[in-house]
Design a protein around this nucleic acid. Structure first.
Lengths: 216, 216
DNA sequence: CGCTCTATCTAAACAGTGTTAAGATAGATA
DNA sequence: TATCTATCTTAACACTGTTTAGATAGAGCG
């Protein structure tokens, strides 16, 4: 499957990236192109043909590697979930107590969403993905698991209780991110607005998951 | 484009299906058709042509009334927000204390989302709507306001604090609804799954906004 | 009543989409 | 060297939203 780029031997003036028929790294090129489109145009701006265009291949080429558009997007979403899980683990690792960890994860979650809106939205657009893909589900659960670990540390021992608390935490930050992206909290477009949004989130998190002992 | 509401004066009361050229109630028919599509196929399943087809008109007909697809969907979304606001007010009116009211509103919010997934998703799909439409923004704020009223009653007096608390409450239920719709909490398709989801939500709400004085 | 006026709708076309079938090509293999 | 197979292209199909020009019908007015 994988192959390496062969140096243009007797090259017939083929430029650089996609010489002739065998692209060589078309999968990666298509995924990268898709991520670029999502970053530039958002989730609604993605088209399979545009991804193929950017990769320098015909519109039919992607089908040989990903089957169809959801197939390609699923691969993109998987990488998105991996990146999200990394960000959540990273955020927690920088703090000590479970409350601080959860707080940091909440900030990291929304930061992730606002920094990569298109990819984030696509990750949660089941209808555009192969929703029952095993690897996708696994990647999604892994990201959720990063939450659960910290939450389990925070709340009591009961797994049931931890599950509920994790659902609560995830719901809050996910809802906040979604509402912010749909402009329900004021402009998130400007840098100033973005800053304000994150401050609001900080207050929300402090309100729901107070770090100090005092409650409200 | 914008029709003037000429109430049927003395005129020949147009029946309803209205074949031929002048449909008579095309706007309502298109909105109803759109809502039906959203109910049957979800937000991704909507197409302007299908809406026109169901209303029995040509694909170009909607443009005369709504300009374009986002224009029609905006009208649908406005009605959705109105219905949501009603549901939230209704839920609150059935309870006494602010905590019980907020709890009931949370349940009603998710109930609304799970009962009308397509419409709900469309309501928050800014890219498919005329996001800066004045009436849409007003309807959206009205729905949010239904939350704020109860929250203000619950928390202290500071408007700033109430704003934060309302954002927290809205984020939680919105995130829960979104995650449930994207199947992150287990099957929501079956009635049994639906029931289980709502029980989880109940626990989440009890966890974040405890009705009793005891905290966790 | 007849005439115009205007809102309403259709027909046709255009550019774009995802997907498929059949064929061309090139790298790997024997 | 000849064949094999993965890879990619070309061409087509059935869709989509939108625009333009034209047809129709109902309302208002003489």
């Amino acid at each position: 499957m994988k192959k390496q780029a062969s140096p243009a031997k007797r090259s017939t003036t083929r430029p650089k990236p996609a010489p002739g028929y065998h692209h060589g790294e078309l999968q990666e090129a298509l995924i990268a192109a898709s991520e670029a489109i999502l970053a530039e145009q958002g989730a609604e701006g993605f088209t399979l043909r545009e991804a193929a265009r950017r990769a320098g291949v015909s519109p039919a080429a992607p089908s040989h590697h990903f089957g169809n558009a959801p197939g390609l997007l699923t691969e993109v979403a998987i990488r998105g979930y991996d990146a999200l899980a990394d960000a959540l683990r990273e955020a927690a690792s920088g703090k000590q107590g479970p409350r601080d960890k959860l707080h940091a994860q909440g900030l990291a979650y929304v930061e992730f969403a606002l920094s990569h809106p298109g990819r984030f939205q696509m990750m949660f657009a089941n209808k555009r993905l192969v929703a029952d893909d095993a690897r996708l589900r696994q990647a999604s659960r892994a990201a959720g698991h990063a939450f659960e670990i910290v939450v389990a540390e925070l709340v009591g021992s009961t797994p049931k209780q931890a599950k509920t608390a994790a659902a609560a935490a995830w719901s809050t930050v996910h809802g906040f991110a979604k509402l912010a992206l749909e402009d329900k909290f004021g402009s998130v477009k400007t840098d100033g607005g973005r800053r304000e949004i994150m401050m609001t989130l900080d207050q929300v998190l402090n309100y729901l998951w107070p770090v100090s002992g005092a409650r409200r």
